[in-house]
Design a protein around this nucleic acid. Structure first.
Lengths: 338, 338
DNA sequence: CTGAAAGCGCTTACAG
DNA sequence: CTGAAAGCGCTTACAG
């Protein structure tokens, strides 16, 4: 019942522990014949390396960390994170690298978790999500010297930490131009948390796209990403004297909430009002009308980040990676003004 | 820049490593004065225990594992899992215990991950979710002797592994009786995967509740939990000659999809058709009409499982824990037949 | 190509 | 109450 160790294998094969280690790790220093026998016995015994022992000899922890600081209700409503995990893990798995997950209350708590994980030798690196405008995590991770990749953010915006990102201004422009082509002139935007970099990027792209079309006063309202605040923001937009005819949301759940508000206010979607969701989960597709959405491949984003992190842990120095921009996927919630 | 070790502290304080270890771990064997000095120096140096070294000396891995085997798209649409993680972690955190997460393709792959994690000394125990009717994981984990708690399942159904569960038949009866009181006589149920124990339990409770009310042929259709299959099942139910006037769903996204189907088919909710969702996320509340839902405290469930697992790891022997049953939360999607 | 030994950072009997 | 030492399971120079 006791776990077999390298010593058990050595005894059984009749060689030294060192030889077994070399054989197991595919390193030179043992004859082919010995290697084969060692591997065979290891297999028979059901031997697995002790991660603790390996970590202690300086190899690696065999795990990377990810800390999230948003309330669970918001995380739950956002398919984004689960899809991201899935992409990350699919990539990590063949390298026998695990994902450590933790939720924190705020950025300081998050920093504390990274510090502890790193000091305890628990992780080899980290993936950061949801970059803030003045992100306190970045300088700390840099000073720790811990390999880390940032998902999102601005090009070069993460200091020495490489980022995996896509240009979010592209789909914003695409969406605004598409809606303008349908005859819309008054736009509203129900955005996420204002201190997040990607919110800022979308905000600016939105303002710029509207300005370029000569549209005067596009309104952006910020929320905490919950359906509740999405509904409230939508109500405010639709109650204004210059009510928008098209609203762009920063996630799916707020867009669904917005759709309900439009129904309450007896506005027809898309005849009176066009709605665009962001991220495009199942959610956008099960409501009626189905929601036009800005779609991106979230698992692929996670996979790219994980690959990047593995390279970084291997000592390579890396630049930012630019992934394909999200693209507008039109469905029934957008249409020409009637 | 190098991590301080126990030897550094010993040198600085002028005592032996052993004494430092005792002091740091709050064990007898050092004077109060020494203990205080050791702690102070450890603090100054920013010392943290190496999990690898601790794990190697047989202490513990300081982590528990959770493996999920469902496609990412389904996981993403299901707020359940994120909320569960959140409850688990909040409980684990004060014990400096981390959560290792992995996704697997099927139960065999899942078993392989548990085996590996356990053999590698990576985890101290595991939390199992989504118990199958003949769950292959259970006997394996028992034979490994790994502490594990099962979320859901039948009382005593996990063999020697303790489970944390609530009686899911209670809310099913509550829901059916409530709908019957509103005048409904023909029920439909859009269920999840048929090989999951909780699906089975709800199926049976549903049949029994209907039988008890003398209702003849309640129909249950099984799905993969996606909105798409939820919509299809709803269409089938509503196209039958004896169309149900009330449908109970096994999650939120399918109920939302069902609501859209009802609209497509020009059925008024709740005048012509009542709908009940399960789990009650934001999603149920942002659509119109808001969905009546069977609500349970998912983070609390996760927290209970984590507490239970920590006790188990500490060597206690435990029984199953029964948590409060989910309860029906009426909203606008259910009403008296008109 | 192989063996013997030191070392990673901690814990824990065992002497003093 | 404290010190010296062995040991956890592995890796890695260093001799042979």
């Amino acid at each position: 019942m006791k776990r077999p160790t390298i010593a058990d294998i050595a005894r059984r094969v009749g060689v030294s522990q060192g030889a077994v280690s070399y054989a197991l790790n595919g390193r030179p220093g043992v004859s082919e014949a010995t290697r084969v026998r060692v591997l065979k016995v290891a297999e028979e015994l059901g031997w697995r390396p002790s991660v603790a022992a390996r970590a202690l000899t300086g190899a690696s922890a065999g795990a990377v960390g990810l800390v999230l600081s948003r309330p669970p209700s918001v995380l739950g409503a956002e398919p984004f994170f689960m899809e991201l995990f899935s992409g990350i893990e699919t990539t990590l798995k063949p390298h026998s690298c695990a994902l450590m997950l933790q939720m924190a209350d705020d950025q300081d708590a998050e920093i504390e978790v990274y510090r502890r994980w790193w000091a305890e030798g628990r992780i080899d690196g980290a993936i950061l999500v949801e970059v803030h405008v003045d992100d306190r995590r970045l300088p700390v991770l840099e000073s720790l010297g811990m390999p880390a990749v940032v998902i999102g953010g601005l090009p070069g915006g993460a200091g020495s930490l490489p980022s995996v990102r896509s240009d979010e201004s592209v789909p914003v422009h695409e969406t605004v131009e598409y809606l303008a082509a349908l005859g819309h002139r008054r736009f509203g935007r129900v955005a996420g948390l204002p201190h997040l970099v990607h919110t800022r990027v979308r905000d600016e792209a939105f303002a710029e796209a509207c300005a370029r079309l000569g549209l005067s006063d596009p309104v952006t309202l910020h929320t905490d990403y919950t359906g509740e605040e999405g509904a409230r923001a939508t109500r405010r937009l639709l109650s204004s004297s210059s009510r928008p005819t098209a609203i762009i949301y920063d996630n799916d759940i707020m867009a669904v909430a917005g759709l309900s508000v439009a129904q309450e206010m007896r506005l027809r979607v898309p005849d009176d009002l066009s709605l665009v969701a962001w991220d495009d989960s199942q959610l956008a597709q099960v409501v009626r009308p189905a929601l036009t959405a800005v779609r991106r491949d979230v698992p692929a984003l996670g996979a790219a980040a994980a690959r990047h992190l593995l390279s970084l842990i291997n000592g390579e120095t890396l630049d930012d990676v630019e992934t394909e921009p999200a693209r507008l996927t039109p469905r029934g919630s957008t249409g020409a003004l009637v």
